[in-house]
Design a binder for these strands. Sequence first.
DNA 1: GGCCTTGATTTGAACGATCAAATCGGTACA
DNA 2: TGTACCGATTTGATCGTTCAAATCAAGGCC
Lengths: 343, 343
Amino acid sequence: MPRSSDRVTIHDVAQRAAVSRQTVSNVLTHPTRVRPETLERVQAAIAELGYQPSSSAQSLRSQRAGAVGVEINTLGPRSHNETMAPFLGSLAMRAAEHGSHMVPFGSPGDRPMVDGYQAMWARRLVDAFIIADTHHGDPRPAWLEENGIPFASFGRVWDDPTFTGWVDVDGAAGTGAAVAHCADLGYRAVGYLGWPSGSVVGDDRRAGWAAGCARTGVAPGPEESCDQDLDDARAAARRLLADLGPSDAVVCASDILALGLHHELLAAGREPGSEVGVVGFDGSDTALMHHLTTVEQPLDQIADRILDLLDDALAGRPRPPAGSLLQPVLLRGDSTSARSRSR
Amino acid sequence: MPRSSDRVTIHDVAQRAAVSRQTVSNVLTHPTRVRPETLERVQAAIAELGYQPSSSAQSLRSQRAGAVGVEINTLGPRSHNETMAPFLGSLAMRAAEHGSHMVPFGSPGDRPMVDGYQAMWARRLVDAFIIADTHHGDPRPAWLEENGIPFASFGRVWDDPTFTGWVDVDGAAGTGAAVAHCADLGYRAVGYLGWPSGSVVGDDRRAGWAAGCARTGVAPGPEESCDQDLDDARAAARRLLADLGPSDAVVCASDILALGLHHELLAAGREPGSEVGVVGFDGSDTALMHHLTTVEQPLDQIADRILDLLDDALAGRPRPPAGSLLQPVLLRGDSTSARSRSR
DNA sequence: GGCCTTGATTTGAACGATCAAATCGGTACA
DNA sequence: TGTACCGATTTGATCGTTCAAATCAAGGCC
């Protein structure tokens, strides 16, 4: 009899169904090995007792924690949260289907270090890691690789073209689609508000804008750059405004930048959308809240693909021949609207 | 010799230091039981091999997962993220010091159900849960209590005054401080932009405003209410504007509402701060980004206290006599500024 | 010198699951 | 009738750790 107030174990089920522990185990993991009649009886016992295998015991036996570490930079650029928080949400939801769970952990410092990873890995609290926002000189990919620790990355790992365990959003395609969208709506010239050149993500998005202009034949409008910060964005937007003709549009490298432009347009008495088009990037809550047209990152898809990559790595399957580049989706808001077709 | 490429276990350390497994274990958990000389030798071996006990093995042995479940409502009101994401960050950071980690999990539905909790608990993936945003009729606290599952709550559990395992922010004190701040700066009347009455949190914050006006002797300004949504907030703010005199201020139930008012003020050509004071609530990124004066929730403190509560519960210590009500902190932004003392 | 106490260390057992190998019962075949 | 075989089931061992009990060595005391 299962002692009440005590967890029901495989042994309790075995006794109840008058079989051995192993048969119960087989019912759950290798049902074909069990005679149909027995299967049914054991399944009934499992249901009656509400048995669920203990994850601790399974972890020890299988040498798998069933967990994946995700670093969250609380002290880093605040804007990170804008993407990382929903992404962690997507991961947590999807992970359940992959039979694992996320373990967020923080590194106190403002720049990514391997200390936190080291601590989680040494005790095997996790089987793998998911990293994001890697940049040139990021110590993490190399360290993980050297120590044979499975990991996957949201964002290309620029330092090591050999590494294919990444999933990224096709930024250039996104800004390209944004330009096409503006061209379709009839905006005259399409400008660009981006980040200072040098960041790989930023350069990619800018390239998509330039290529989009060339492809659609729309004139490239004025261009400015600033940091990922609302105040900076507003200052840059003000510089941009002078050169911005009526019925021009601006594609931005992020929703924060788009919001800065949006605010400055209103301050200058020019209505976003009907007078000047604004397209953001990221599909953040901020953009949705302000009804900005934006390029949405398919976070659910990214999470799914990343978890698949980790499953493969943990199963010892070889890495894919190349990383996954997912297509973002243009999300129409009120900051772009159809022009009267008078040109 | 520890087989390379294989995890170093307690056994490896024992061999290296020429002692038994148990002595190594004692060195880490009961150092006083070990002769100083031996202690040193074993510690050296531990350091040389870089031994860290396996968390899976410890979990099985101690019947403790060392993890705490936190539900994240991805599909719920988006504004939840505004507070919950940073809160999860604080929890994750603090948890490390408490020897545990967070496991975020999602429930697909939009209203809180116990299914997700049930699944995590059945397999003992977690030892306890942290719940937030409980409301009247919330099934979770009662269910957790019934099943003897340890938990703590961010936010009072209104349905059960007996339950003291909660930590909350003193909302009334926060809005009261906001009123005092406005009075100090010399604003004439202080209005209120809140949520429809009926929500416990909202009613609390509104009460603080009313009491604050009475206490400081400042005249209560006009009042409006709306949902936690930027569009709604702007509509309500527009209604408010008509009744809003020059040099009046408005205390808001949330940063989103404050932002709505901020935007409408600009649209009406009235400058936030110098002309009309605006105070938000939550200390969210949105508020910081827009330099709104806001009432900041001490998330780190809350996380710390909640983890303490869980430690107590897991150790079988009795619940505190009452819940913890923490004081929020007023964060000065540009949306309130000193009036010229001409009255 | 023998016996008891104390402190340090070791051995045995257990946590709950699953893999591998052993056992069991029945059927087919010579 | 005996044996080889096959599917179904059970037993033994293991993952890495820690509690409880056993062992061991040294010192104190009569």
